[in-house]
């Protein structure tokens, strides 16, 4: 069946199987930034924004995105580059596999709570696992990014 989605500001039509999930549809369409981690809603790696909210695309039925705005990290290049600069300064980036999903989740947080405290940042991102960094350098980098006023 056909599903019409605004992906990063561009209207796209995807011909999908009824049970297809957004993760698979986006990856097949070339949005390689959307990545598979656990496939069971537990790790946050596949996070994309649907109407501005972080959701796990591995378990989000593609056809539910009909008429919605889907944002992958390709849709927020300037914000991702800004966050990357702080990650680079803090050495917080390591394997990078989780970073696009993290950029999206942090960007969503910036829209609603740019003054988030350390604990608010941790709670907001608790569903975004990272096995490389130990989290602390990421926290510092994310705080700097949120504090940055363009």
């Amino acid at each position: 069946m056909i599903v019409n989605v605004d992906v990063n500001g561009r209207l796209r039509s995807f011909d999908v199987l009824p049970g297809a999930f957004l993760l698979d549809v986006l990856r097949e369409a070339g949005y390689t930034s959307v990545r598979r981690g656990c496939d069971s809603t537990s790790c946050g790696i596949c996070t994309v924004l649907v109407d501005g909210k972080p959701v796990p695309s591995c378990s989000y039925l593609a056809i539910r995105a009909e008429g919605k705005k889907v944002t992958t990290v390709e849709g927020i290049p300037d914000e991702a580059a800004r966050l990357a600069r702080h990650f680079g300064e803090e050495g917080a980036d390591q394997c990078g596999y989780c970073n696009p999903s993290l950029a999206l989740a942090v960007y969503a947080l910036k829209q609603i709570n740019p003054g988030a405290s350390d604990d608010e940042i941790r709670v907001w991102l608790v569903g975004n696992l990272c096995r490389c960094s130990g989290y602390q350098s990421q926290l510092v980098a994310i705080k700097r990014y949120l504090e940055e006023r363009p």
Partner: peptide
């Protein structure tokens, strides 16, 4: 509700 997984799961 806030204790269920992370924000991405709470959003769905």
């Amino acid at each position: 509700c806030r204790h269920v997984m992370g924000i991405n799961v709470q959003n769905v």
